[in-house]
Design a protein around this nucleic acid. Structure first.
Lengths: 372, 372
DNA sequence: CTCGGCCGTGTGCGCGTTAACATGGCGCGA
DNA sequence: TCGCGCCATGTTAACGCGCACACGGCCGAG
């Protein structure tokens, strides 16, 4: 790996046309075709642009940085030269001198899941809008060591700030131990004391779901939870519990899940066996899918015999049998806001650890009805 | 944005302890706690490490680059100093001088989908293993302009190579126009002439699915396609067609889909209305979900009346009603291989445009039975 | 004539890499 | 025991590339 001098940038195969500067007469040929008139094998630098445009490197710099005192005509000449050479600033050199890499890092667990993937997407779009690059680091496991590993990796890449999508207790704990002087934003990060957090209001969402079922006349609502160490799971459970309490309804024992359809199926089998179960709030849509199947197999009709509400509103939810009433989370908005918050921290690390809450929304479909 | 001199790296708040070099006696205190003994407000550089370790910066460099001729003891002293200062190489400076950024870019459309997300995950893990960073760029739309935009963005970040996950015809076309001297690997890239490609064998997968249905005694198999401009959709259709031909079975007209459950539902309604439909190969699992529901609503039992096979094996497929027989794609393997191929191109751009094929696998569950 | 707009020249800086070379110490064979 | 040669390190310096600052000069307007 210590191979000497070997630029892996954009390098034309063998463009050694030494007579390359004179023919500036045809600058506006076809733009899309790759032009080959670089002086040497290395990518063009600012001085190359300057030479071609007949100006100084300083002027090129002024153009690139939108310095006001450059004549329009000069600006154009430089722009043409830039395009001609397909010049792009060497981001390494730029980063080195400015001290800011224009890159942010995103740490995430399992971008295969709908929620994290959508959030990441939102972050990426917003980042590009703001002129930032996005580097990613996935967590191999959901423990502290993995967080530290991912963090180290992003730090080695010298990102300017980090957004962490990994809403579990161990991860939230790990974040506490990071240097407080580095800009970090947590998504769904629980009550992490000193960290800015963007989160969907899980508690309210769970209340919405539970209340919706109660409003249809159910005496109480059962609950299939998410995994214990996920903060969202805890919040949804407490929202459910709060709604029941507020309504004076008895809280039945919860059934433990782990987000997977398998767990929902298992819970569904248990619940289907009891006649007194008429309403279930399942902590996410995937588990609801499993539960729906268990109910179906047991001959319990949804919603006629049992009503079900999920959480997330995955794209498939509308095509479950029956179409699932669920709580929608605006992940794209979460992504946008977390980036905004990070950028804000980027130039002023001060300020309180802001906490932004995105409201959830109930999507009523066909899995809820009055009790039989 | 042209704010002068403002290092956004790891900087302690106000660590101006000028008496910081003498206390080298306690080097092995608690490792996790953030130590504050940097001379100035800026992150430590190599010379700082050298000074603390009592060696020259050259030696530090030798240690970092695993140069053989450094005594074990010296190596350790340097290592301790590095840890003490929490030194990390300035990646910008390193990139600037070595000419390689140790970063690869991934262009992807809709990482919200299971396939792309899984592939990205595989790439990321493999990249980290190989000491590379991963920068992402999502496509806003699936046209050429978006590809160029994403490409430009990654080039501006000076990535060393790019993997494109975007298996549609327009995207594949756009890739043809990229400078051939830059390392690019396409995932599911179709027959892109000059590009290395890693792909799951869609044709074989479709044959597997179709044959599986024929083997159960169905006279023929209907097909719900993916969107027309997706290469995978075309391959699956031709695999289906080939299997039918090989078996001498008549090929019914296809039903157009777009990957969405909604489209599957629509197709399902059409098919449910015909008595002669006993077997359907649906181009992906999400559409199969919609189709399953349409069948159910129409009173056509799966698999008793109609058999269904999907494609992808999303995590939910095992919990559809009934559990879906489908074709599994090893996305993680695709990710790994595409990275391997890219790395290979990175140091030798020559060589033919290799094409790696990952075999698919049929996962038999409960949605297939002999015809009634 | 002076001031301001426009642009050029020149230089230092950031930080890690690498080459070229110098140095002192040690082991080993003659 | 002398001397050669290698090992481990230090010293010095030159990049790579863009940014920023300090000037200096030119030209046209007031």
């Amino acid at each position: 790996m210590p191979g000497p001098r070997d630029p892996s940038g954009v390098a034309a195969p063998k463009p050694d046309r030494t007579t390359a500067k004179a023919d500036r007469a045809v600058p506006e040929a076809d733009r899309t075709a790759p032009k080959v008139d670089r002086p040497s094998g290395r990518p063009p630098a600012m001085t190359d642009v300057a030479r071609l445009a007949g100006v100084s490197h300083q002027t090129v710099s002024r153009v690139l940085n939108n310095h006001p005192s450059v004549r329009e005509a000069t600006r154009d000449r430089v722009a043409v030269a830039i395009q001609e050479l397909e010049y792009r600033r060497n981001s390494a050199a730029r980063t080195l001198v400015t001290g800011r890499s224009q890159t942010i890092g995103v740490i995430s667990f399992d971008t295969t899941l709908y929620g994290p993937a959508s959030t990441l997407f939102g972050i990426e779009l917003a980042a590009r809008e703001a002129g930032y690059f996005v580097a990613i680091a996935s967590l191999k496991a959901i423990d502290r060591a993995s967080v530290v590993e991912a963090y180290e990796m992003l730090m080695n890449q010298s990102v300017g700030g980090i957004i962490v999508i990994a809403p579990t207790a161990p991860v939230a704990m790990a974040l506490q131990n990071l240097p407080p002087s580095f800009p970090v934003v947590a998504v769904e990060g629980g009550a992490a004391a000193s960290l800015p957090v963007v989160a969907v209001d899980q508690v309210t969402g769970a209340k919405l779901a539970t209340q919706h079922l109660l409003d249809h006349g159910h005496r109480t609502v059962w609950h299939v939870t998410g995994p214990g160490d996920w903060l969202e799971a805890a919040d949804r459970e407490s929202g459910w519990r709060a709604a029941l309490e507020a309504a004076g309804a008895p809280a039945p024992p919860t059934l433990d899940g782990d987000w997977s359809p398998r767990a929902g199926y298992a819970a569904g089998r248990m619940l289907a066996a009891r006649d007194d179960v008429t309403a279930v709030f399942v902590a996410n849509d995937q588990m609801a899918l499993g539960l729906l199947r268990a109910m179906h197999e047991a001959g319990r009709r949804v919603p006629n015999d049992v009503s079900v509400v999920g959480f997330d509103d995955v794209p498939e939810a509308a095509y479950f049998m029956p179409p699932l009433t669920t709580i929608r989370q605006d992940f794209a908005e979460v992504g946008r806001r977390s980036l905004a918050l990070l950028l804000q921290r980027l130039d002023s690390l001060s300020g309180p650890a802001e906490r932004q809450i995105v409201p959830p929304e109930l999507v009523a479909r066909d899995s809820v009805a009055p009790p039989p």
